[in-house]
Amino acid sequence: MSKAVEVEVGRRQLRLSNLDKVFYPATGFTKGQVIDYYTRIAPMVLPHLRDRPLTLKRYPDGVEGPHFYEKQCPSHAPDWVKTVAVPAGGKVIDFCLANDLPTLVWLANLADLELHTSLSKARNLERPTMMVFDLDPGPPAGLLECARVALWLRETLGELGLESFPKTSGSKGIQLYVPLNRAVTYDQTKPFSHALARLAERLHPDLVVSKQKKELRKGKVLVDWSQNDDFKTTACVYSLRARERPTVSTPVTWDELEEAHESERPERLVFEAEDVLARAEEHGDLFKPVLELKQSLPELAAA
């Protein structure tokens, strides 16, 4: 085992360990590279993590080893790691807030490969700042089918006056984000997203399901609306995923999605850590509007 190194990140002393340990055996991607990725993507990802209760998904022995979710911020966390107390099921959970670079590096050093965030910010947990549709394909359906559903959702949301933004999940599917950033509660986003998922299912019964049931999903895309819930978290944009290769949940443009869909080349929607850093240089943060654009759910016509 390699020795631990002391580093100074943003005026904080951190002790990083096992930097040579291979976390992604398929590509030889090491823990040191994980920390390096998060350090370099920090300017893009920190605004999306800021003030959101964070669920850690830790892989102490890399993606092939066991993993565990951690909601309660570890008791050994340095005192400068900010937390927020959230009542949950009769107790209170102190969630970490990844608000700065030192915290992000500290998390990476804990082998927290995946960053899962709440749709709400700590100061107003009842209010989601966005609505999300998680498109999850049931094999043999894959990214192309997800892209088709995403494009339909985009158009439909557009007709309701809502702009939406896609990202790859970094795993198998695509996620669609609808920025809200206005006074809205989960009691509004949840039924709305559910209704839209059901509508998609009815109009495209051969392509879409809106229920979680595994047996229904074969060859179809689950439009998972249920993440619009204050107890749920979703993989944050720019989060690494614990897949075979170090893939990242990557924001893409609608043009890219359309092109991949039309040319039937799903591999164009797969990005690894290095690709994402290059894209960030080139495009900046494609997901910035998700933090800034103010939109309201439309008032629906009487049926």
């Binding site: 007709e159 016509a301 009487a302 049926a303």
Partner: peptide, 29 residues
């Protein structure tokens, strides 16, 4: 109210209005 039906009605309204007069926002049932 059935939210999905309302959604559908709103979409239909948006479509017909767009065909007729693209300037007006969809609002009427």
């Amino acid at each position: 109210p059935d939210l999905m039906a309302a959604l559908e009605a709103s979409l239909a309204a948006a479509k017909t209005e767009k065909k007729k007069e693209p300037s007006k926002p969809a609002s009427k049932p």
